[in-house]
Simulated scan of single mutants.
Amino acid sequence: MHWLYKFKNMKRILIFITVLTALAFTDSFVGSTSVIIAPNSKLLINVKTNVNSFKCHYDVLKLNKPISVSFKNHGDKISFKKTTLVLENVNFDCGGPGINNDFKELLKTKTYPKIFINLREINKDQNNENSIHALVDLEIAGVTKSYTIPIELKEEGTLFIKGVLPLNIRDFNLDPPKKALGLIVVKDVIEINFELAVKKY
């Protein structure tokens, strides 16, 4: 029965990824589609300082262009090619003009105005059949790092992808800004929180 459960679980993930497109399940196949990010999605970055914290919310209404999804099923994992979510730094709102400018300066927006999140593959945790992980390449300020993220998939008419990605900004050669004569310092680790509602285009 283990192989039957595994078969059904991978089929469910494939249906998620193809966003309910009619594709026959086999041990190995290649597919492609296009998706859009629905307006009820959420994406924000949590930033902490030595005295407080703030959230930078992304204007998801700006994510109105279709995203191409090309994938191949390998039986126990799904690999992707050129499946990238592009975020414009100027579309983050941290709560006010001053802090917005500081955030854009932190990300070196004048030179690198965009963040790129490239999905490489999705696979199951070998120790937990119900746990799903995504391998992504994250490019910030011209530096690319790879991360494995535990994600939660929910199908409710649309595909909901939910997860949290903590990262150290120094890994991207970013210097935490200092304010008030150096008394307020942004901490190195920030968190990207996302809850993306995805629909077939």
Rank of each mutant, 00 (worst) to 15 (best):
R170I: 12
K124H: 04
L153A: 10
N127C: 10
K108N: 14
V143K: 15
L165S: 04
S146L: 05
Y147M: 03
N123G: 10
N123S: 11
N128E: 10
N168E: 11
V136R: 01
T111D: 13
K162E: 10
P113E: 09
K162V: 09
I140V: 15
N128H: 15
L159I: 12
Y147I: 05
L174V: 08
T111W: 03
K179I: 12
R170T: 15
T144N: 08
K162H: 09
I115W: 00
I151S: 01
D102Q: 06
T109Q: 11
T158S: 15
F116P: 00
F103I: 03
F160A: 09
P113K: 02
F160V: 09
K110Y: 03
L135T: 13
L159Y: 07
G142I: 12
E105V: 10
D102M: 09
D175G: 00
K114G: 01
T148Y: 06
N127P: 04
T111H: 07
T144L: 04
A134P: 04
A180T: 05
V143N: 14
D102V: 07
L167F: 14
D102W: 01
G182R: 04
P113Y: 00
S146A: 13
I117W: 00
D102I: 09
L181T: 01
E152F: 10
I151R: 01
N130F: 09
I184P: 07
F103W: 02
K179Q: 13
I115G: 05
A134W: 03
I169P: 06
I169S: 08
V185N: 11
K114C: 02
E152I: 15
E152A: 12
E105S: 14
L165E: 04
L135Q: 07
D175C: 02
V185T: 10
K187T: 07
D171H: 10
V164R: 03
